[in-house]
Nucleic acid binder design. Structure first.
Length: 1114
RNA sequence: AGUCUCGUAGCUCAGGUGGUUAGAGCGCUACACUGAUAAUGUAGAGGUCCGCAGUUCAAGUCUGCGCGGGACUACCA
């Protein structure tokens, strides 16, 4: 019975299934948590996925990241509980259900009741839970699926209500306005989702106007004229009556222009952005003489009298342009600055109507500017917007809202009313509100210019009519009230990558607006706010009990039927709750639902049904040590978590966060069903296994960079990293079993007694532990994975094992062999631990094959770094060994001398004694590796010199170029002088510098008569002359090699002894005689005889000579 | 349009504080190795380090302006 299991070949997906089964049968995940009971906890929050869509390959990515740090910290001794969660509310669920049922939103309440509809949503949303759970398990993502939080649970909702009521009590929940896309024709607000439907943006031709706003006191601008106007352009003249401010760009340059008023012909000054002057004035106009101007002349003379930044215009007040109503909710008619102002269109001065533009609204609010909303929800002017001539009140502001008939009727009215300003109204066509406002401005001397303008404008996808931006009532959370605090606390969060925290997230916080919570939908958490019809009394319910009391009061007051029982906190049931206010009036629920982002942002509290239950659990699990999601969650989950914890607890809710990038296809295209480039995670895992997939994803690029997912890369990870590691283990197992080696941790060979090669790899191993710990502690997994890979492939497999092979297969068990096994075993075991967070399956497979003492690698303690074992000097020495070997092999290659042919001597010319000491330590390794007999050091003869730019640059500065040339041109004598004296005077141009040894690098590039190779400061020469003895040994080696192949072809065990019969051949004769013992040892041959005359079974080829040979098992 | 980010070999990626032969792996070609063999070594081909300007003795690296890809936000007078 073998101690270490041997494998013929490894089927990755298949053994992963076995490992998985073992985890499940033995509850390894549960143990990994319970084992750490009483230890410090590492808190992780699971961002809930929505179970109504299929998981994609990007979920493997984000979950690999999550899993990795949870596992890693478990290894470090923390207890890491991971509660799974499901995001269950929201529009995508509704749309999915509507598709399935073949209904539209209008059918809700008609063809299907709200109760039935929501029931359908509840069922539909968990549709793919099985698929998700499968993926979770199969990819090795350890998360507790038995007790997940589900956002539609009554308990979950109750916590949300509690949080909302706390916000309400703090005065942070209020009802207010926001500017939203609104379709007057359909009578509804449109979500951004709806606005992004194809075809909503259409080209339209609008009448635009540049209006003239008269400044009240322009003396600060030192104008040369009495009147000074601000010029502002608009594509929606119908918003001008609602103008309350003008916005300029703080850093935009404006100018004051003296010119003639185009309609009143008086001398005036106007203000506009300097860059746009050319749009309104031609160069030749600047030449015109003001004195020569005659009323009616087409070309107006102008003159730029001054320039200033927008900042200087800030605060100026102006006369209301069209005074139909007064502003009551704030300041008005002032110049303010706005970051959105550009000089691409118009005049660089933006007319602000806060009710009809999101930017306008925001900038007005920031500056304390009030609003005018002179349009009603049907899209018509209020009654007050009339002057008896141009405007008549209660008329549609957009022509598109009228039918042809209505237009004709209006035309008749227009003909009559406009007769006072238009002489002949008989030919008049229907004039839109925009056109009549322009006409009015012109008549009143407030119009600078009018023109038609083509642009795109959003239309309602249902009615095809243009939308308006309109202020709608919504419930808000006053996040702006805690903005500073959020910015402050954000600085204590460790963001990976940092720029997402400081840049994207930081900027987002800086420009924060209040959080619009309202959603006019059906399937979601109902807003727990009840109000009286007149809005005079508002109540925010904070618990189910409280609501129950209200229900009782409602029943008592006769507002609700006695039979009413509240089982579900969703619509429509909560809407049926009506209860009395303090004055006995009916209170109704505000019909809105809340934003689903509130659901997920509240998960730290709601997952534990805090504060109704689990108070201690919550407190012990807040804030999170670590969360990770896609970067697209920056303004989603990352924000809502942060906002809620800051508002409710004045704390951060996560200390470390990884915002991972997208997973694109191999060409860098976003994966989409339409393009057919979606990668199926199940198929990938079925083919290559979860570990290779995970390893590829983590090692290929930093998690926060986008990953170009190439399935070939997964295959490569499997082949290269896992294949090499598997081979290394396989190699260990074969020989360990032959020698009956068994690792005993209590009785290992002291490090000091091991060979340099062993001490070297052990040192490398400790350095690796250190590196991996550092990177993982810093939430930087990619360098950790790459370091492990480099250790396994380059150092362990390709150097330590390769150079140690003979130690394993040669002779009986001895101390050196014992140490070799121990060293390799220790490396493999530690590697299994280090890699286990990333590759949980293979690592456990490896660990168990090595008979680790725990049940699973995931239950072990991560090894501490043994600093004392790190020998940087030795690592440096080995580096020399590797470089020198590589150089020798490269010379062999160039000279076409195969490695099997022994050579006599390596020569290394030396400048620096220290390097010699380093190399001497490892010279035997080098000689064995490159098959050379001896290594000698010689004094460099032909020296060359090179400036050390970094050092010399500081010394020479501007004379560097000339100096470098002079140094490189130094003679041998000069170099020798510099070496012996340690310094040398050198005249560079007109100055003399003292060059010291540290300023230059002296090296030897050539050795007369030898073949050399150079790399950096090292030069290696190889003596390629062949003595007869060397030649004979080469032949012996060639013979051994061919016979080894034959042994193998004959299916002999590596331990089998053999008898060899060789046909007589001149080429071999003397070599075999000379090296008989050596040959026999190498081939495990009991005998080696010449057999002349007999017919032998096999023919081998030794240096182009056909040799007859037979081998027999002894 | 704004904010952030990326742009180095055919592909995927490394390249602290600026320093002179710009690296690795994969792929390709050739050779070697063969008691780990679905591995391994060596060599070769392959680079305007996205472009332009600037700072500097010296720029892949720092600054500015562009170009191109991506993400997010906004949809604008």
């Amino acid at each position: 019975m073998s101690k270490y299991k041997e494998y013929k070949k490894l089927d990755f997906p298949a053994f992963e299934e076995e490992v998985l089964k073992n985890w499940q049968d033995n509850q390894v995940f549960e143990k990994s948590v319970s084992l750490r009971e009483g230890q410090r906890s590492f808190v992780f929050y699971e961002g809930p996925p929505s179970a109504n869509g299929m998981p994609g390959i990007h979920h493997v990515m984000s979950r690999a990241v999550k899993d990795m740090f949870c596992r890693y910290n478990t290894l470090k001794g923390f207890q890491v509980k991971r509660k799974a969660g499901w995001d269950t509310h929201g529009l995508p669920v509704e749309i999915q259900v509507e598709k399935t049922l073949g209904i539209t939103k209008e059918d809700i309440g008609k063809k299907i009741s709200v109760a039935e509809y929501n029931e359908a949503c509840r069922k539909d949303v968990m549709k793919f839970t099985d698929v998700w759970n499968n993926l979770t398990q199969r990819m090795g993502y350890w998360v507790n699926l038995n007790d997940p939080y589900v956002t539609y649970d009554n308990n979950y909702i109750e916590t949300l209500w509690n949080l909302l009521s706390r916000l309400f009590e703090k005065g942070l929940l209020y009802k207010g306005y926001t500017i939203q896309p609104y379709s007057p024709a359909a009578g509804t607000g449109l979500s951004s989702h709806e606005l992004n439907q194809p075809g909503t943006y259409k080209d339209v031709k609008d009448s635009t106007a540049v209006a003239m706003f008269l400044l009240n006191d322009a003396s600060a601008l030192k104008p040369e004229t009495e009147r000074v106007y601000m010029l502002a352009w608009t594509t929606t003249p119908w918003t001008l009556p609602s103008n309350t401010a003008l916005a300029v760009g703080a850093n935009i340059t404006y100018c004051l222009i003296k010119t003639i008023h185009p309609h009143t012909h008086e001398l005036v000054s106007v203000v506009m952005a300097k860059d746009l002057v050319g749009k309104y004035f031609k160069p030749e106009q600047a030449e015109l003489d003001f004195a020569a101007y005659q009323a009616g002349d087409k070309l107006l003379p102008y003159h730029i009298s001054d320039e200033f930044k927008g900042e200087e215009l800030k605060g100026l007040s102006y006369q209301q342009l069209l005074p139909f109503a007064q502003v009551e909710n704030g300041d008005a008619f002032r110049v303010i600055t706005g970051d959105f102002v550009t000089t691409e269109d118009g005049t660089g001065i933006v007319h602000i109507a806060p009710s009809f533009g999101a930017d306008d609204f925001r900038v007005a609010k920031q500056n304390g500017i009030g609003s005018l909303t002179l349009v009603d929800k049907r899209g018509r002017f209020l009654d007050c917007v009339q002057d008896g001539v141009f405007l008549y009140g209660e008329e549609y502001v957009k022509e598109a809202y009228l039918t042809e008939d209505e237009k004709q009727k209006d035309l008749a009215i227009q003909k009559e009313k406009l007769s006072s300003v238009i002489k002949d109204t008989s030919k008049l066509n229907y004039l839109s509100v925009d056109e009549r406002i322009i006409l009015k401005l012109q008549t009143e001397g407030k119009l600078f210019k009018k023109e038609k303008y083509d642009h795109t404008y959003p239309h309602c996808w249902r009615t095809d009519k243009p939308i308006l931006y309109y202020p709608l009532e919504s419930w808000f959370i006053k996040t702006t009230a805690v903005k500073e605090r959020m910015v402050e606390l954000n600085k204590s969060i460790n963001w990976k990558p940092e720029h997402t925290g400081t840049g994207r997230f930081g900027n987002w916080l800086e420009n924060l607006v209040d959080w619009n919570l309202s959603r006019s939908r059906y399937w979601g958490t109902p807003l727990p706010v009840w109000r009286t019809a007149d809005g005079s009394e508002t109540r925010c319910i904070g618990s189910v009990n409280e609501l129950q009391e209200c229900i009782e009061a409602g029943k008592k007051a006769g507002f609700m039927p006695e039979s009413f029982e509240l089982k579900d906190l969703h619509k429509p049931f909560v809407d049926e709750v009506i209860f009395p206010s303090s004055k006995g009036e009916k209170m109704f629920r505000e019909p809105d639902l809340i934003d689903v982002w509130f659901d997920s942002g509240a998960m730290p509290y709601a997952q534990w049904h805090y504060p109704f239950e689990n108070k201690e659990i919550f407190e012990g699990n807040f804030p999170a040590d670590f969360i990770a999601e896609g970067v697209d969650q920056t303004r989603g989950w990352f924000f809502t978590l942060h906002a809620l914890s800051v508002m409710l607890f004045d704390q951060i809710s996560y200390k470390n966060v990884i915002a991972n990038g997208l997973v694109l296809d191999k060409n860098g295209q976003k994966m989409s069903k339409r393009l057919g480039n979606v990668v199926d995670p199940f198929a990938t895992i079925a083919k290559y296994g979860a570990d290779a997939t995970r390893w590829y994803m983590i090692s290929n690029s930093d998690p926060w960079d986008n990953l170009k997912f190439d399935i070939e890369g997964v295959a490569e990870s499997q082949r290269k990293f896992f294949g090499t590691l598997y081979n290394t283990y396989g190699f260990f197992a074969i020989y360990a079993n032959i020698d009956g080696f068994e690792f005993n941790p209590d009785k290992t060979t002291p490090l000091a007694q091991r060979t340099e090669l062993d001490r070297w790899i052990y040192s490398k191993l400790q350095s690796l532990v250190k590196t991996v710990r550092q990177h993982m502690d810093d939430y930087d997994p990619t360098p950790a994975a790459r370091a492990i890979e480099e250790f396994v492939c380059d150092h362990l497999s390709n150097w330590h094992v390769r150079l140690s092979r003979r130690r394993f297969w040669k002779g009986e068990m001895n101390e050196d062999k014992q140490a070799a096994y121990e060293t390799l075993y220790e490396c493999l075991l530690v590697v299994s631990q280090l890699m286990s967070p990333i590759a949980p399956f293979f690592s456990d497979w490896l660990y168990k094959n090595l008979n680790g003492k725990m049940e699973s690698v995931h239950l072990t303690d991560l090894p501490e770094v043994i600093e004392a074992a790190i020998d940087t000097e030795l690592e440096e020495q080995m580096d020399y060994a590797q470089r020198i070997s590589s150089m020798v092999l490269s010379i062999r290659k160039k000279e076409n001398i195969k490695v099997r042919q022994p050579l006599q001597k390596i020569l290394i010319p030396l400048i620096d004694q220290r390097i010699k000491d380093e190399i001497v330590h490892v010279q035997n390794l080098i000689l064995a590796e490159v098959n050379v007999k001896q290594l000698e050091f010689i004094d460099a003869i032909d020296k060359s010199i090179k400036p050390n730019f970094k050092v010399l640059g500081k010394k020479l500065g501007g004379k560097m170029k000339a100096g470098a040339a002079l140094i490189q041109a130094m003679t041998q004598d000069q170099i020798v002088e510099l070496e012996s004296k340690g310094q040398l005077e050198l005249q560079i141009e007109d100055e003399v510098f003292v060059i010291e040894l540290g300023d230059v690098e002296i090296l030897s590039k050539e050795i007369p008569g030898y073949k050399v190779a150079n790399e950096g400061r090292l030069t290696v020469a190889l003596d390629i002359s062949l003595s007869e003895e060397l030649r004979q040994e080469g032949i012996a080696r060639e013979f051994i090699s061919k016979l080894q192949a034959l042994r193998k072809d004959s299916n002999l065990e590596v331990t089998d002894k053999i008898h060899i019969l060789v046909g007589e051949h001149e080429y071999l004769k003397s070599s075999i005689n000379q090296f008989k013992t050596y040959i026999c040892t190498e081939l495990l041959a009991a005998s080696l005889e010449f057999a002349s005359g007999k017919t032998l079974e096999n023919t081998i080829d030794v240096d182009d000579n056909s040799i007859q040979v037979t081998i027999q098992k002894a």
